[in-house]
């Protein structure tokens, strides 16, 4: 069986500056790959490159199909949903409008029931459906971003630092919900996190990025158990 996402020799950057110098990584079907590394290593750039949000070269396959020459909107239609860094809340839209934007690619009739399901997962959003999304707290906005991404019924979810700036209790809640989603829907996740121990607990594979190159790949448990790796790359 082919991997859900297969990235080989990916180069990408902003304008003339190349940030990624040929990286490779995989996400297995229903698997979680954690992408770790210091600030500026190229984690967010990797997610944006996969989405087609910046100039890139290399081979990216989603379930065997090449998506590296596609436009961002076509990639979204193929089933990749993005929870961007900074949450990407549309502040002027209501919570409900934000959520429905997530379901834009879908033409099936079960959007309404999926929306209801998301509101069960994130009850706090139900109370605020008609509110401007800009009035939500950071944690609520993160939940909104995840619920919005899941409403597209993706095959692959790209999560960019979901724990950023949130209280530990909220982070715990968030990851509990993510585990539930993972077992329910069987989607694959590519997770970028600063909080390495959290990410390694959640993921089954991990890649460590260093200055735009993959420094280390392996099972999440192995990497988490290696004290030297932790000290050198992950700082805990």
């Amino acid at each position: 069986m082919s991997a859900l996402l297969e990235v080989t020799d990916l180069h990408a950057g902003y304008g003339a500056g190349e940030v990624l110098h040929g990286i490779a990584l995989n996400v297995q079907q229903s698997g979680v790959t954690a992408l770790l590394g210091a600030n500026g290593a190229g984690k967010t750039t990797t997610l944006r490159a996969i989405c087609g949000m910046l100039a890139r070269s290399g081979v990216i396959r989603l379930e065997g199909e090449r998506i590296d020459a596609m436009t961002t909107e076509d990639i979204a239609r193929r089933g990749i949903a993005h929870v961007p860094d900074g949450r990407g809340t549309f502040l002027d839209l209501t919570v409900g409008e934000n959520l429905r934007l997530g379901a834009y690619v879908r033409r099936d009739r079960s959007v309404a029931s999926d929306l209801a399901h998301m509101l069960d997962l994130f009850p706090v959003l139900r109370e605020r459906l008609r509110q401007q999304a800009g009035t939500l707290s950071g944690g609520e906005q993160q939940m909104l971003a995840i619920a919005r991404a899941l409403l597209s019924r993706p095959r692959l979810l790209l999560l960019d630092e979901p724990s950023f700036g949130l209280a530990p209790l909220i982070v715990q809640q968030l990851f509990a919900i993510l585990s539930r989603v993972r077992t329910e829907s069987g989607i694959g996740i590519l997770l970028v996190e600063q909080n390495a121990s959290l990410a390694l607990d959640f993921a089954d594979h991990a890649c460590i990025l260093e200055a735009g190159r993959i420094a280390l790949v392996g099972a999440a448990a192995t990497i988490g158990a290696d004290e030297q790796v932790r000290r050198v790359y992950l700082g805990y």
Partner: peptide
């Protein structure tokens, strides 16, 4: 309105 705020992200929703 969403595209007015953040066009690339709207594109990422298809």
């Amino acid at each position: 309105r969403a595209a007015t705020e953040n066009a690339p992200l709207v594109q990422a929703f298809g």
